[in-house]
Computed example of a mutant assay.
Amino acid sequence: MRVLAALSGGVDSAVAAARAVDAGHDVVGVHMALSRNRDQFRTGSRGCCSIEDAGDARRAADVLGIPYYVWDLSERFEQTVVADFLAEYEAGRTPNPCVRCNEHIKFEALLDKGVALGFDAVCTGHYARVEIAEDGTRSLLRARDVAKDQSYVLAVMGPDRLARSMFPLGDVPSKEQVRAEAADRGLAVSAKPDSYDICFVADGDTQGFLRDRLGSRPGPVVDAEGAVVGEHDGAYAYTVGQRKGLALGRPAPDGRPRYVLEVQTSSNTVVVGAAELLTVRELDGDRAVWFDPAPEPSAWFGCSVQVRAHGTPVEARARRTAAPAPGSASEDGAHERVEVHLEDGLRGIAPGQSLVLFEGDRVVGQATVTASRR
């Protein structure tokens, strides 16, 4: 197969590309330039997409003996991932930019362009498995290394793009083995730190980034009874479940910590309260995508639900429906939704988060949280 290997400049993508070469595929490496104002160097393990990363990707391609290109996807990245990030926070929701990057950049812009150029598949260094049934149906499964599993952020891709995706690291038992393999292959990135935080907020100051882009918008912080207990500089900078940085003017009557319960963008108000008020038992999700075999519409089924990239799955019942959820951010009414009943509840779920449904290790589907109820 002709395979387009996404080379980020890190160790995972380099080893994944090497394994694709070993498998006999005709591999071409490509680095996605996602920012037009990239710093020359990363700060330790913060961020990615720097000029340093592009150079590391080129050197890895040279060692592997494969062609290498840089594709400028910065405008697409700004218009989709960054714009969505700002719009979601401004609307009082909490987005996951890695999910949107996989949706709009790695498995839309990159894959679609690759297919148009005659490539059969895209290869990435994500930790997830693809299982192919006798009838050709492909399933997305958790990685063997549960600690590195990335099926949560990949679930948004859906079955069609999964059919053109390769994840050679899915069966690797540990990241240490990947680093050892990279060193054995002579790849200089073998000891390079993993990137973390939001790639376009390389200093890790998400609130500062939002304030620079959205401006100062002072407003009240109130308790669950509506009494003003503090002030904020912009409701958009807060998320459900947040405890730190509230700067409350007076303590709670019982002296216990308070958490963000709700962000009311219409009134520019942040509502805080006790920890027990964060636990919810019902979730609504929109923009749902389903993997084959998809569950029957309207039929309840047992599953586990994960609402954070490295969160613990919890037991639940769910069903798919065709109508958009109330207050949905969907662009049209054709998107499916999902309803979820949590067996034991979850704490601090914010609209905008990605919820992923599993049956064992298999991804059933994914949706964006629109509402939660206690």
Rank of each mutant, 00 (worst) to 15 (best):
D286Q: 12
R46C: 13
D62M: 12
R36L: 15
P351W: 03
K175W: 00
G249H: 04
A316C: 06
E103K: 11
V340Y: 04
R58E: 15
S330Q: 11
D22A: 15
L169A: 07
N268A: 15
C199D: 05
V153Q: 06
D12M: 05
R142H: 07
S8Q: 10
I51L: 14
D233Y: 00
G204V: 14
E131G: 00
A237K: 07
D212T: 15
E225D: 15
F358G: 01
V21M: 10
V340L: 13
N102G: 12
V201A: 06
P295Q: 09
V172S: 08
L210K: 11
E176I: 00
E262F: 00
E131A: 13
D284N: 11
M157W: 01
A155L: 05
G302P: 02
T206C: 07
V153R: 03
T43G: 09
R164P: 03
R100D: 12
A54P: 08
A235E: 12
A87I: 02
F200G: 13
Q177W: 00
V30N: 09
S267M: 08
R243D: 02
Q366M: 08
A57T: 04
A6M: 08
H232C: 12
Y89A: 09
G65P: 09
L140I: 07
V30I: 14
C123E: 03
D284A: 13
T94G: 00
W290V: 03
H335C: 10
D194G: 04
L277P: 01
V338F: 08
V228N: 05
A155H: 03
T80K: 05
G285N: 11
F291H: 14
H31K: 05
D284H: 13
A14R: 05
A191L: 05
G352K: 02
K192S: 04
T137E: 12
Q79E: 15
G215Q: 13
V272N: 11
E78L: 07
R46T: 09
V30D: 11
